[in-house]
């Protein structure tokens, strides 16, 4: 899996694929929780809704920027793949964009509009979050199916759409367990228990479907000895799910101890599932059609971006940590002063 580090044309595409993969994973976890909070929105009372907004308010902008970075890296490092993937996913991308627009602006408008308009913006916030999650799940499904557009792949993509939306609600609940207390926290624990099935079915569906898509993937996962090396992935995932299930039956713990655990475990679970997928697709950026080496931009251009990224990405990580530290602890209603 490791490239030849003496040859820029070999390691640069690999480095960019890794960077892009990392930003997609960070995006899925971070925007996943705030999209999830949006999907859970209608289940809460108006006062709880203000707190839920408070729990994601200072972060959502930065969370969404990871999507911009991911699609930006796809655009700049693998321009041909960017064109192929996004033209193939024209309509789901459109739905996602409309969803992102609606929830992003609803977020700001609901805090500033007059009271009787607030209900409308609340609904749009929910609808936008749901649309975004469904569209992303749909794209994930089509991508796994090698961007083939048939009735069967659409059916599979519809399944992954639902599972991803439920999965986002799950990580959203985990976030709320950490950021809230009292009645809303107890509700979040219940939501977490009730949406865990989405994660299980989602990971299950992808795991079952992936080896069936092509013989390459089948061999990659199920031939000997690979199957032994890869065994920790499903085993660890299974253990995490069991642990989460037990935890969510007992939470909240006395004195609100370890309220961050479900979110941490959910993040680990998402990361494991994601690693599995990354293993499946490597070295392809457009499944079965275009590898990262074929799609990559000129090494000179990549090197310029890479140097910048090496300087800037640690700084970004630093001030992201700063923002999360400043707004740590239980969320309150957001105020501008």
């Amino acid at each position: 899996m490791l490239p030849d580090f003496a040859n820029p044309a070999d390691w640069l595409p690999w480095a960019f694929a890794s960077l892009m993969g990392l930003s997609i994973l960070i995006y899925v976890v971070l925007d996943g929780f705030d999209l999830g909070v949006g999907i859970l929105f209608p289940l809460a009372t108006p006062a709880e809704q203000d707190r839920m907004i408070g729990s994601i308010g200072p972060f959502w902008d930065a969370n969404e920027t990871w999507l911009v970075l991911a699609v930006g890296l796809l655009l700049v490092a693998f321009p041909q793949a960017h064109g192929m993937i996004l033209t193939a996913l024209y309509l789901p991308v459109f739905v996602m964009l409309v969803g992102l627009i609606l929830r992003g602006v609803a977020f700001e408008f609901r805090a500033k509009a007059r009271d009787h308009h607030k209900r409308l913006w609340n609904r749009l916030f929910f609808a936008g979050s749901l649309m975004t999650a469904l569209a992303q799940g749909f794209m994930l499904g089509l991508y796994i199916m090698g961007l083939e557009q048939t009735l069967a792949t659409y059916a599979f993509a519809t399944l992954t759409a639902v599972f991803l939306a439920v999965g986002y609600s799950f990580i959203g609940s985990a976030w709320l367990i950490h950021k809230t207390d009292d009645a809303l926290q107890r509700k979040a624990v219940r939501w977490g228990r009730e949406s865990l099935w989405g994660v299980i079915l989602g990971i299950g569906a992808v795991s079952v479907a992936t080896p069936l898509v092509s013989t390459r993937l089948f061999d990659k996962w199920l031939s000997f000895p690979e199957v032994l090396y890869l065994a920790p992935l499903p085993i660890l995932s299974g253990l995490l799910i069991l642990w989460l299930w037990r935890m969510l039956r007992q939470m909240p713990y006395a004195g609100d101890a370890r309220s961050w655990l479900p979110f941490a475990a959910a993040t680990a679970l998402f990361a494991l599932a994601y690693l599995g997928m990354a293993y499946s697709f490597y070295p392809y950026v457009v499944p079965e059609r275009l590898t990262i080496y074929e799609a990559a931009s000129a090494p000179e251009s990549l090197l310029i971006i890479f140097v910048g990224a090496c300087v800037v990405v640690p700084v970004i990580a630093g001030y992201s940590v700063l923002a999360y530290t400043l707004f740590r602890g239980k969320a309150t209603e957001l105020r501008y002063d």
Partner: peptide
């Protein structure tokens, strides 16, 4: 893309 890419990337970064 070899020109526009780095410029857009620097904007994001």
């Amino acid at each position: 893309g070899n020109i526009a890419g780095p410029l857009l990337a620097y904007e994001v970064l």
